[in-house]
Write a protein that binds this DNA or RNA. Structure first.
Lengths: 117, 117
DNA sequence: ATAGCAATTCGTCACATGGCGAATTATAAT
DNA sequence: ATTATAATTCGCCATGTGACGAATTGCTAT
């Protein structure tokens, strides 16, 4: 039950939902997520750790930078299927579409990310 | 977004998850849910109103009693698919199986429910 | 009418959660 | 070695949430 509640609690915050949606397009650097969301680095980092605790995302450290992506096949089925549900539920969401557009623009302007030069 | 967050927030509490799981077997009276969950009537009622607000359950008033069931086809797709996800994620959950067993026993002992005579 | 009961709403309290800035850690660059 | 930077952890505060009992609502039965 702990595992399932970790997933539902992780999804019960709009910022975290936006983070997951952003990662739908593939792995991103923390600095890009911070830029996208517009909250303090410490806040975003905390959200990411909650998502990771629920096994909804996984991280990869590369040098000074940390990259996160949605979890793959090795994650618990409950987490995988929750992601599938969420992605589908958000597919026409205005806020998420706006985020996606803004993210695309960010990546176009700074292909390596703001900090990740 | 409000609609989706209502669903995720509604699922982010163990008591509410147990309530939904209990209703999987079909409509139940509030008094039966109170008995099953073992919390104060006012608390259970609040939980039910949150679940209803998220369109995960719907209520039917009959005389003095209120019966709740999982939402049907007229509910928003996001709510329906969330229920499908939850039910599947809980299918082997010990706590939920125990609830189900206890509920079966309650119904056997008091076919009409504790209060609903 | 009125008494009784199921359910909900309201008011309150303790605790959880989300936000931030400061401090810390880890790595890269000088 | 020292400095700089990405990210996280920590400590704090404001707000949200879940619990309860008391009061209220709505219906039934007397």
């Amino acid at each position: 039950m702990f595992e399932i509640m970790a997933v539902t609690k992780a999804l019960a915050d709009e910022t975290r939902v936006r983070l997951l949606a952003a990662l739908q397009g593939g792995e991103l650097c923390v600095c890009q997520l911070i830029e996208l969301i517009g909250l303090a680095p410490s806040t975003v980092s905390k959200h990411l750790s909650i998502l990771r605790g629920a096994r909804l995302i996984e991280g990869r450290k590369h040098g000074r930078w940390m990259y996160y992506r949605l979890t793959g096949a090795q994650a618990p089925p409950a987490a995988r299927s929750a992601l599938t549900w969420l992605i589908d539920a958000l597919k026409d969401n205005p806020l998420i579409l706006e985020d996606r557009q803004r993210l695309a623009q960010m990546i176009e302007t700074q292909p390596e990310g703001l900090c990740c030069k």
